[in-house]
């Protein structure tokens, strides 16, 4: 699959470089839709390293990233008198970090949306991320990383992360891209987008983000969706009303605004604007 390039701003580039050189986990925060998860995928692709993803849910426990001992299946097997029940190792399920520690090359590990988990979750991983090794009590072995993986952690800020955990990470806040970065991003995704269409679309997009009181500001991923629609319909730029931008509702705004109230608000603004122009 030919994925479009991810645009790294220079400060983000430095953050990734530092995380690789100094072998520290990199914690990435930012508005939704600024490509936090994409970053890990892209870094793995550039490094040509295997990517191991660990998506965190509210019920995820730290242990699950290391290993799980499936005692229930073992109990079941023992009731059925299976032979494999004798070896406990048969019931140790490997987690993402186990796999990352034991691959033969340096892996990239994505711990996605760490803030979704329990408050204690990051603390439970401190030792493992620091020493890059952990013990398996059931089989009395120690798993140590052959190559320290590059760990990228994303957070949506739903919970505060503990200080001890933060101290061990590099922290980078992805800002919302400015106009020039944004047009680079769009170009990477749609290399042959018409120039005037792009210009008009970006104008609408950034204007829209300025509208006060929007419940959900449109983000990069929504812009890309919207552009995809526009390109698929092969609309000329003036269909967006590039000249009198604010006097017409942007075409297919459903891709940009996800909230009924936002659309109402937007329509009202346009109405007011029309009246003022008379």
């Amino acid at each position: 699959m030919n994925k479009p390039d991810y645009i790294l701003t220079d400060d983000l580039q430095l953050a990734v470089d530092a995380a690789i050189t100094l072998e520290r986990p990199l914690l990435v925060k930012g508005e939704p839709g600024t490509g936090k998860t994409e970053l890990a995928i892209d870094v793995a692709r550039r490094l040509n390293a295997p990517l191991l993803q660990w998506h965190i849910k509210s019920s995820t426990k730290a242990n699950q990233g290391l290993y799980e001992y499936d005692a229930v299946s073992r109990l079941r097997d023992s009731q059925l008198g299976e032979a494999r029940v004798k070896d406990i190792a048969n019931y140790i399920l490997h987690g993402v970090l186990w796999d990352a520690f034991t691959t033969d090359e340096r892996a990239v590990v994505l711990i996605d949306e760490i803030d979704k988990a329990d408050i204690e979750f990051p603390n439970d991983l401190l030792q493992e991320l620091d020493r890059m090794s952990f013990d398996v009590y059931e089989t009395r072995e120690t798993i140590t990383a052959k190559h320290r993986p590059l760990i990228i952690i994303t957070s949506n800020n739903e919970k505060e992360l503990p200080d001890a955990f933060l101290r061990r990470c590099f922290f980078h806040y992805i800002e919302f891209p400015d106009r020039s970065t944004m047009s680079q991003i769009v170009h990477a995704h749609f290399p042959d987008v018409k120039k005037d269409l792009l210009k008009a679309a970006l104008e609408v997009f950034f204007d829209l983000r300025e509208v006060p009181g929007l419940k959900k500001k449109p983000s990069t991923s929504e812009l890309l969706d919207w552009l995809k629609l526009l390109i698929a319909d092969d609309l000329p730029a003036d269909a967006l009303g590039a000249e009198e931008l604010r006097t017409v509702l942007p075409r297919m705004h459903g891709a940009l605004l996800k909230n009924e109230q936002d659309i109402h608000l937007f329509e009202r603004l346009i109405f007011l604007h029309k009246q003022r122009q008379r």
């Binding site: 220079d10 400060d11 430095l14 953050a15 470089d17 530092a18 050189t21 100094l22 914690l27 992360l161 200080d163 933060l166 101290r167 990470c169 590099f170 922290f171 980078h172």
Partner: peptide
């Protein structure tokens, strides 16, 4: 290890990366 050296801009980025977690 030569990360974040060479100019103040990079030093700014790197020291923020290291020191500020919020």
């Amino acid at each position: 290890q030569h990360v974040g050296v060479l100019d103040l801009q990079r030093f700014y980025q790197f020291s923020r990366l290291c020191l500020i977690k919020d």
